[in-house]
Amino acid sequence: MTVEMHWPDHLLTLEDWTALPEDNSRSYELVEGVLVVSPRPVLRHQFAVWQLAAQLHPQLPGQLCAVTEAEVIIDAALPPTVRVPDVVVIPNKSLEDDLARAQPEDVVLAVEILSDGSRRTDRVTKFFEYADAGIEHYWLVDLDEPASLAAYRLVDGNYELVAEQSGQMGLELAETPITIDIAALTSTRTDR
């Protein structure tokens, strides 16, 4: 069965965004009221997202959790912007309250895993949007061999590079030491 989608012919409000039908066949974001549609990530990308969240979550302080593909309202003013980072770290209270989307002030960390079609957006546009929204930590993961992670922290309104490397990486997040096995983001059990 084919469902016919009528695409918006105007800048969307947050109410319009919320009213869109659920469709998991593609990825959607809202950028200054414009609906941005892209293909779903390939399996390698999805595996890396899952692996990263699985590594992060048990190392976080008890009041925080790692969530994949959560909507974050970057700017609620008209025309609004809603981004969907690959992984976010947010307070457990956001889960307990069963919120549909997170506010930027609740996002401790936003992570984007670079992929074809999103590299410029993740490295340039989202870099500045997330900083402007006040998200304290931003990580960019590049899965090209050797897989690497670049970690940024917000300092005086701008992101500064804290660390960038492949292999194992030790970082501090919410005053807690975190270790990420970057190679594990792309390796299956048979690779180890």
Results as ranks from 00 to 15, higher is better:
103 Q>A: 14
138 Y>M: 06
141 V>T: 12
123 R>C: 12
28 Y>H: 12
139 W>P: 06
52 L>Q: 09
56 L>P: 02
137 H>C: 10
29 E>Q: 03
103 Q>N: 11
112 E>L: 06
35 L>Y: 06
117 G>H: 04
66 A>F: 01
48 A>S: 01
138 Y>Q: 09
28 Y>P: 08
149 L>M: 08
125 T>A: 13
96 E>R: 01
35 L>A: 05
112 E>M: 04
132 D>A: 11
146 P>C: 02
146 P>H: 01
29 E>M: 11
32 E>N: 07
106 D>E: 14
135 I>M: 10
121 T>Q: 08
79 P>C: 00
126 K>T: 05
30 L>G: 00
131 A>S: 15
77 A>F: 09
42 V>R: 04
31 V>A: 04
128 F>V: 14
102 A>C: 13
131 A>W: 07
124 V>S: 10
55 Q>T: 10
61 P>L: 05
136 E>D: 11
79 P>M: 03
72 V>D: 12
98 D>S: 15
34 V>T: 08
90 I>A: 07
131 A>V: 04
131 A>E: 08
127 F>E: 08
129 E>F: 10
22 E>V: 06
146 P>G: 09
67 V>S: 09
68 T>L: 10
112 E>W: 01
97 D>K: 15
95 L>W: 11
85 P>H: 12
25 S>D: 10
127 F>T: 03
89 V>A: 02
78 L>T: 01
34 V>Q: 06
53 A>D: 04
121 T>L: 09
152 Y>V: 12
126 K>N: 11
58 P>H: 02
113 I>N: 01
41 P>T: 00
130 Y>R: 10
20 L>V: 14
42 V>H: 14
